[in-house]
Design a protein around this nucleic acid. Structure first.
Lengths: 245, 245
DNA sequence: TGTACGCTCTTGTATATACAAGCTTGGTTG
DNA sequence: CAACCAAGCTTGTATATACAAGAGCGTACA
């Protein structure tokens, strides 16, 4: 009895107790048990259910609220928020982190990793001469095994000479590049396209179905590092932004 | 003395005490007094300086850490983080201005302008009761006679009672709303969809062809003003953003 | 000399408690 | 019947306390 007293400390499971409560709530939501606008148990109720203090239960609810999973309002209660936008227009985030933040498992498939010569378009984007050597990679990113991003990337070999030797199953190109060449600037363009043959096949969707296509040119102090085309299936991805004036 | 005892409660300034600490830290950083990697006073130090408990000082530091302003590491201390990506790059622009900026002629077609009752989704977005009266408008915007945006908008009648009487062929809803209820905040979500029947017809494109769909909730001081769905033909529109770090 | 231990500082987790403040509900009162 | 008020829920703020765990430093010991 009184596990409450016998383990005032961090607990046996090596994981904070509020994390267990967060996990439980996320599980209910993801399983569909708790739909949007569902009223989540109160702080006191959770405290009792999990045998923790109200402040600990509160922390779980507060963090999930900060993460956009829940909505709270004083006097009313805590509710499941509308499904959250996955990405952000305002920051350049690592897709693996985004997947992990949703509590899903990340994976990828490397379709191409080679050196080639720059086409006119690529040369202009990277600030190189036409026909110059560039690195070319195509990677498909998976969320719980489901393809959510087709990444085709051209990288400037003069700035990142060891790009081709990287193990991108361990760290995404984004992750590697931001470490090697910290980015100082980025141009982003978003448009909607119908998936063409290669992309449709890689993303396992019907040819012609709507996709969000993001063009992004990332620049470091020394020059333009990389030029990427990111394609997301329209129904598996959203971009969100909160603006304040 | 002992302001600690005389105001255990929320305090005189109507603003939480941890907010004052956050403000102080931000001020030091913005003034350049505390540069990047500067070591911020410890929780105990701040608690003493501001005459609050350690947990309150801690909250200020934790929130600033979540916001990316500070970095913490156990055993070492709390430090000022590197400058963060700048703020509002994605602005809410008036479509008529965008067309004019391209040197094209702007036009529109008003398909619907009516009062109706709020569905669950609309009620939640506008912060109204389900079934409450809302204004509903559907307008197609033209660039040189070519449809480039399908705008379906729900507007809160309590905040903008004269919405239905406006002449939207002269000023777009966006233009009118920003004049009547200056916006303080906006949530934006971007996704790719295939055009369905009504949208495809209005935009004069094939049904099922890829479109960029933007959901935008605009808020004024008094509350949520308007909830709009903007659909652009994928091949006639792009969204751009330049980020600087 | 050099390593290992312990002290002390830091942040991190957890509890118990108190009161403030927002919303709903139900009863009482005019 | 309507208006008001109080009780009882909710979340929000604040405190005091305890122990855990990571990092750095100096001292004592081999």
């Amino acid at each position: 009895m009184s596990s409450q007293i016998s383990s005032t400390t961090t607990g046996a499971s090596s994981q904070p107790r509020y994390a267990a409560i967060k996990a439980h709530i996320c599980a209910q939501i993801e399983s569909g048990e708790w739909p949007a606008h569902f009223r989540v148990p109160s702080e006191n109720q959770l405290a009792q259910d999990f045998n923790v203090s109200r402040m600990t239960a509160r922390r779980a609810l507060s963090e999930l609220t900060d993460e956009g999973v829940l909505m709270r309002s004083q006097g009313l209660g805590t509710f499941v928020a509308e499904p959250v936008p996955a990405g952000s227009l305002l920051e350049v985030r690592n897709i693996a982190d985004e997947v992990a933040a949703r509590g899903h498992s990340y994976g990828n498939r490397i379709l191409k990793l080679e050196q080639t010569t720059a086409s006119t378009e690529v040369a202009v984007a990277l600030g190189l001469a036409e026909g110059a050597a560039v690195y070319h990679s195509i990677i498909v990113h998976l969320d719980n095994g489901l393809p959510i991003q087709f990444e085709e990337r051209y990288t400037n070999p003069t700035l990142v000479p060891e790009y081709l030797q990287q193990d991108f199953s361990a760290a995404t190109p984004n992750e590697y590049l931001t470490r090697v060449a910290p980015l100082t600037e980025a141009d982003t363009t978003v448009e909607a396209i119908g998936a063409d043959g290669a992309v449709a096949e890689a993303l396992e969707i019907d040819s012609g179905s709507a996709c969000l296509q993001i063009w992004r040119r990332t620049m470091s102090r020394a020059g333009t590092v990389s030029f990427a085309r990111l394609v997301h299936p329209g129904n598996r991805y959203r971009l969100g932004a909160q603006l304040r004036f």
